[in-house]
Design a binder for these strands. Structure first.
Lengths: 187, 187
DNA sequence: AATAACTTTTTACAAATGTTAAAAAATCAT
DNA sequence: ATGATTTTTTAACATTTGTAAAAAGTTATT
């Protein structure tokens, strides 16, 4: 998906404002298994995934718990860095070599202060992030691991070929043994 | 907490912009056990709780699952109404007679279009909501029901006098039987 | 092709939570 | 205050999920 389309889908901008956003964005390639947003570090950038797949995870004691996978078109940020300019909690890692657009948060924020349209774009960006997280929470509250596994397959049919089952089990909030039982049961 | 303080804590506004916000807000009293945001209905307002306590809940099949309690100072909205202007999923009900400030969403949105400062206020409001939901999700992922119960007591020591345990169990995501076991174990 | 390293499934058993029902305790209304 | 209603706890049993270890399957490397 083109970055311009990702931007316009959030909140339509006139050429002039769009140009301002594009002028502070750059496309980068990140190789496989690279942690580009790191717990306890300040993240200077907001990223938009264009190609590839990433995992967002947190550390609980010594094990990693996967909160979500990111697919093309989605924004990826360290929430605490973006919102408070402080060190964050999430790790985000590429699971495949990925292409993404990054924007320096500081530059974006100065656009927010100087353009009503871009401030509203930033508002819609935040609002859509609310819906994304809300969706995750709802899924967690209302659906069984088995249902969530089947939802994931429906959304990304070949994810089991791209992401190992241990990661998917972590995302579902069950052990890999339980996921194996779910898989055995579905067939 | 005064509404002006709630507003300024989200994002400081100059007198002029603050005045615009105040001019479209009104204080209302809502009596106990009133559902003022209702599943499947469009909610025309955003609310800020000044006094009282509310529960945010969803219906799963025939039972209600409590997502959160709202305390003074917090915003309460039907997310889908606020963001998409469509019917929402959450129910919000007063558990005590409450005082709240309400603002018509449509009026607020026209302020967003015409004031950069208020657009940025709306952006910060959305960003803080992200953090609130993120916090809920994190608690759900990383903490046991027992830990979350103790966290709740630490935050609102007398909540067990104001909210029945069946509601607290629903919020914790366990049955009331399990909550009784937790309480018996803590003592 | 063979070995090593990693991933996934299976098994057996333990621990935690749910379900249902009943009893006990607390609260409310007259 | 007393009986009625609601809320909370306890008990017994069923079900689900976790833990640990072994087996089977897959992928990478020499």
């Amino acid at each position: 998906m083109e970055f311009v389309d990702i931007v316009q889908r959030i909140h339509p901008l006139k050429k002039e404002d769009l140009q301002k956003l594009l002028s502070i964005s750059e496309t980068i390639q990140v190789s496989k298994n690279t942690v580009f947003i790191d717990t306890d570090k300040l993240s200077k950038y907001i990223y938009f995934l264009q190609e590839g797949i990433c995992r967002i995870y947190y550390h609980k004691a010594d094990i990693a718990v996967i909160l979500a996978f990111s697919f093309p078109g989605e924004a990826m940020i360290s929430l605490n860095s973006y919102i408070h300019g402080k060190r964050g909690y999430e790790n985000i890692e590429t699971l495949e070599t990925s292409i993404m657009i990054r924007i320096e948060i500081a530059s974006l924020q100065s656009l927010y202060e100087n353009s009503t349209a871009i401030a509203n774009w930033g508002r819609k960006l935040a609002e859509f992030e609310i819906l994304k997280i809300e969706e995750r929470l709802m899924q967690k509250l209302f659906k069984t691991a088995s249902e969530r596994y089947q939802d994931l397959l429906r959304k990304e049919a070949n994810i089991t070929n791209r992401v190992k089952l241990g990661f998917i089990a972590s995302y579902l909030g069950v052990t890999q043994v339980t996921l194996s039982r779910i898989r055995a049961h579905i067939r």
